[in-house]
Design a protein around this nucleic acid. Sequence first.
DNA 1: CAGCTATATCGATCGATGTCAATCCGTCGG
DNA 2: CCGACGGATTGACATCGATCGATATAGCTG
Lengths: 116, 116
Amino acid sequence: MSTAPTTETSLDASCCPPAEQPGISLEDAQQRAAVFKALADPNRLRLLSIVKAGESGEACVCDMTEPLDLGQPTVSHHLKILVEAGLLNREKRGTWAYYSLVPGALDRVTGLLASL
Amino acid sequence: MSTAPTTETSLDASCCPPAEQPGISLEDAQQRAAVFKALADPNRLRLLSIVKAGESGEACVCDMTEPLDLGQPTVSHHLKILVEAGLLNREKRGTWAYYSLVPGALDRVTGLLASL
DNA sequence: CAGCTATATCGATCGATGTCAATCCGTCGG
DNA sequence: CCGACGGATTGACATCGATCGATATAGCTG
């Protein structure tokens, strides 16, 4: 609206519940969005699926390049994103790198949705 | 690996379960990723949050531009994406457009995660 | 040690996406 | 009928992100 002060730089840190912004905060939203960004790619979803279906719940990079039909650097890049999002664990054994689901990570994502 | 036939153009449509690809299919992954793409933006998450917290579970555009500090066209654009993702309903009453959560939509997203 | 293999990192390219300004459409009030 | 207002659409622009080729690093093996 025209009457709304566009520069509302929180002049009120004193008495009453200030402004009562509806919904979640911007910071909160940014953190949650970061997780969904990691999930917002078909190949990353397939990576998660492959890891989840793997032998002992883990899989190495070489097992994932072929089914996805992607180059090895690309797969490595996607896996890094999933690790940084807190969804996958990375464990290096010898020459190979094994990735596994972080326990409870997907349930935590569910919580992000439910608490909107 | 080096011994894998890189051009595996499905020569087997006859007898046995062919190739047994691990994880979900590419098509399935693309559909799921489309939903997560809609969720992968902080402002869209805030929109969902505002709608959910609204009076009778709905909110109109003019109620959302200010808390998000975004232009009206941008908000309209984000809302359209959420509607196309099947997360929001749009109902126009007179001059105003009211948006509401599609019942069970978030639970369906949870299902997308659980069935990976 | 030399060479090979499995991954990770870097740099570049190109399409996807968030944002805004300008404009258009529909509805309401005079 | 016309001006004002809510909202959607369009076009432009800047940034982000997925992908690849080339290269670097680390561990195994002869």
